[in-house]
Amino acid sequence: MKPGPFVHHAPRSVEEAVAVLAEVGHDGKVLAGGQSLVPVLNMRLASPGHLVDVNLVAGLDGVEVSDDAVRVGALVRHAGLERHAGAFVANPLLRQALRNVAHPAIRNRGTTVGSIAHADPAGEMPSVAVLTEAVVEAVSVRGRREIAAADFFEGPLETTLEHDELVEAVRFGRFAPGTRTGFTESSRRHGDYALAGVAVAVEVDGGTVRAARAAFVSVTPVPTVLDLSPVLAGLALGAPVPAEVTDLVREHVEPEGDIHATAAYRRMLAAELTRRVLATTVHDHEEGAA
């Protein structure tokens, strides 16, 4: 299989890129890592007349760590962010999730920002975006705007991004000091899309849990955050995870069945994975401490 005919654009600046997007309108697609877009083109699920290849645009390949965020440019590869020492120290959840993204070859080319812009409910990074209260930085010929992750995802493979906008970067928020994070997922084979997955952030105060939240992979149409604090606040570190947690997860998720798993199985799996990752997260471990 191969894609339909298209015009390839290779802008050298953000200004040039958004000018092309404004000109071609809905008939344009942005190409960065291409690990999501190219298969879609090859299968003729989309046939844009123009590809705006931003790989030559300067200034989009940086990771910036500040007191309140980790800013990831549009050309930062999954593998680069996964290995970034400063990003790991500032927000361990980024590395925890990125280790589960497909295979090393995909992570070496695919971009974290592109994964979020693709908005696949089976992707790991959209769930991380909402859990970290990330901000999407969009730019067009009309100017720049910031979109909260909670407002960015509109449906499966749908966002509130305008057709002429380019996602320049995503700022992942940093958690409060003492927050512990964890990520786990289950797939039929390593590197396959997850049947279900979960990211958690647990705020710890002394020897007890102060607050806890979770976001999910493959079991909700758009990534959303579930507040687990009503049943976890006050829990002593190392204590068993209350059964009420799984009840909350089962009520929150909205899985669909397919050839790989029924909706009921995915619902059960999401609840069990949440219980497991929480059990690990509330024990002492260096990697999950922000």
Results as ranks from 00 to 15, higher is better:
residue 19 A to I: 13
residue 52 V to W: 05
residue 62 G to Q: 13
residue 120 D to C: 11
residue 117 A to H: 01
residue 18 V to H: 04
residue 233 A to T: 14
residue 94 L to R: 04
residue 289 A to S: 11
residue 102 A to P: 01
residue 4 G to T: 04
residue 281 T to I: 09
residue 198 V to E: 02
residue 65 V to S: 10
residue 290 A to E: 13
residue 31 L to N: 05
residue 132 T to P: 05
residue 204 V to S: 09
residue 180 R to S: 08
residue 180 R to V: 09
residue 124 E to A: 11
residue 138 A to T: 03
residue 51 L to Q: 03
residue 177 P to E: 09
residue 32 A to V: 04
residue 125 M to Y: 12
residue 174 R to L: 11
residue 133 E to Q: 14
residue 211 A to C: 10
residue 270 A to M: 10
residue 135 V to H: 01
residue 51 L to F: 09
residue 29 K to P: 03
residue 218 S to Q: 09
residue 251 E to W: 09
residue 268 M to Y: 12
residue 11 P to L: 09
residue 220 T to I: 06
residue 175 F to Q: 04
residue 130 V to K: 00
residue 107 R to E: 00
residue 65 V to M: 13
residue 255 P to E: 05
residue 241 V to I: 15
residue 102 A to N: 03
residue 89 V to P: 01
residue 208 T to L: 15
residue 107 R to H: 01
residue 205 D to C: 15
residue 231 V to A: 06
residue 29 K to V: 08
residue 63 V to G: 06
residue 33 G to F: 02
residue 45 L to F: 13
residue 152 F to S: 00
residue 129 A to R: 00
residue 38 V to L: 11
residue 146 E to A: 12
residue 191 G to W: 06
residue 9 H to D: 06
residue 97 A to S: 10
residue 156 P to W: 00
residue 255 P to T: 05
residue 133 E to V: 11
residue 182 G to R: 10
residue 107 R to D: 03
residue 249 V to P: 06
residue 12 R to A: 15
residue 26 H to K: 15
residue 130 V to C: 03
residue 202 V to T: 14
residue 120 D to T: 10
residue 36 S to A: 14
residue 177 P to G: 09
residue 109 R to I: 02
residue 178 G to S: 14
residue 50 H to D: 11
residue 205 D to Q: 15
residue 164 D to Q: 03
residue 94 L to S: 02
residue 47 S to E: 15
residue 225 V to A: 05
residue 167 V to L: 07
residue 197 G to W: 08
residue 33 G to P: 03
residue 119 A to V: 01
residue 206 G to K: 12
residue 129 A to S: 06
residue 92 P to E: 07
residue 111 T to I: 03
residue 115 S to H: 10
residue 43 M to T: 14
residue 40 V to Y: 10
residue 230 P to S: 00
residue 222 V to N: 01
residue 209 V to F: 14
residue 173 G to A: 14
residue 279 A to N: 08
residue 227 D to L: 04
residue 230 P to V: 03
residue 120 D to G: 12
residue 60 L to R: 11
residue 186 S to I: 07
residue 56 L to E: 14
residue 200 V to M: 13
residue 59 G to F: 07
residue 102 A to V: 05
residue 197 G to V: 09
residue 58 A to I: 12
residue 59 G to D: 08
residue 252 H to L: 05
residue 211 A to G: 10
residue 171 R to Y: 01
residue 149 A to E: 02
residue 215 A to V: 02
residue 220 T to V: 08
residue 256 E to A: 14
residue 290 A to F: 10
residue 256 E to C: 13
residue 110 G to P: 00
residue 176 A to R: 13
